[in-house]
Amino acid sequence: MLPAGHPLFAGLLRSLPAGLIALAITRTPPHGRWWARAAVLGVLNIGLFFPFLFIAAERLPGGVAATLGAAQPLVVAALAVGVLKESPSAWRFAWGVIGLIGVGLVVLGPAAGFDGIGVLAGLGGAATMALGVTLTKKWGRPAEASPTTFAAWQLTAGGLFLVPVTFLFEGAPPAIDLPAALGYLWLGGVGGLLAYVLWFRAITTLPVTSVSMLGLLSPMVAAVLGVVVLGQTLNPVQLLGFALALIAIVASQRPAPALAKAALR
Score class of each variant (00 low, 15 high):
Ala4Glu: 11
Pro7Lys: 03
Leu12Ala: 00
Leu12Gln: 00
Arg14Phe: 00
Leu20Gly: 06
Ala24Ser: 13
Gly32Pro: 11
Trp34Gln: 09
Trp35Val: 11
Arg37Asn: 12
Ala38Asn: 00
Val40Lys: 04
Leu48Arg: 08
Pro51Tyr: 10
Pro51Lys: 07
Phe54Thr: 12
Arg59Glu: 12
Arg59Met: 14
Ala65Phe: 05
Thr67Pro: 09
Leu68Cys: 13
Ala71Trp: 10
Gln72Phe: 08
Val75Leu: 15
Val76Met: 04
Ala78Trp: 06
Gly82Val: 14
Gly82Asn: 11
Leu84His: 12
Ser87Asp: 13
Ser89Arg: 02
Arg92Pro: 00
Ala94Phe: 08
Trp95Lys: 01
Ile98Tyr: 06
Ile101Met: 07
Val103Ser: 05
Gly104Lys: 05
Leu108Asp: 05
Gly109His: 10
Ala112Glu: 05
Ile117Ser: 10
Ile117Gln: 11
Ala127Ser: 09
Ala130Gly: 11
Ala130Phe: 11
Thr136Leu: 05
Ala143His: 13
Phe150Trp: 10
Leu168Ala: 15
Glu170Gln: 12
Asp177Glu: 07
Leu178Arg: 13
Leu182Thr: 08
Leu185Phe: 03
Gly191Ala: 09
Leu194Thr: 07
Tyr196Gln: 08
Leu206Pro: 00
Pro207Leu: 03
Leu214Val: 09
Pro219Gly: 05
Leu225Lys: 01
Gly226Tyr: 07
Leu234Asp: 07
Pro236His: 03
Leu244Gly: 04
Ile247Pro: 04
Ala248Gln: 04
Ala251Arg: 15
Gln253Trp: 04
Arg254Val: 03
Pro257Lys: 02
Leu259Ser: 14
